[in-house]
Amino acid sequence: MEKLLYRDSRNYVPIDVTKGIDHLTGETVMADKEAPKGYEVMPKCKNCANFKADGEQMGVCEGSMSEPKFFAYPDMVAITCDMYKEVK
């Protein structure tokens, strides 16, 4: 299983581009540090079934209503996206 970084974890809230707070411990942690085992995965486009990768940092959102489909990028947080479908 791929390691989970804090910045990809639902238990992390970013303070800035480098660091954030671990909501479960209250500690300030670095964004790119590995999160403890069992931490929840953050909904992001890269974890969504509607995301079709097109290169390393770009892709298409299949849930998009427009034609052609609107682009998406893997790192975008999708907590508020109604079309988010987690890849199982």
Binding site: D16, V17, T18, D32, Q57, M58, F71, Y73, P74, D75, M76
Partner: peptide, 23 residues
């Protein structure tokens, strides 16, 4: 620095976001 890109000499943006910004 690192994975952070300086924009306009003030704002930091993660490098993962830069291709989308340009697009």
């Amino acid at each position: 620095f690192g994975k952070v890109v300086s924009i306009a000499g003030k704002f930091g943006m993660r490098q993962e976001e830069i291709p989308a910004l340009l697009k």
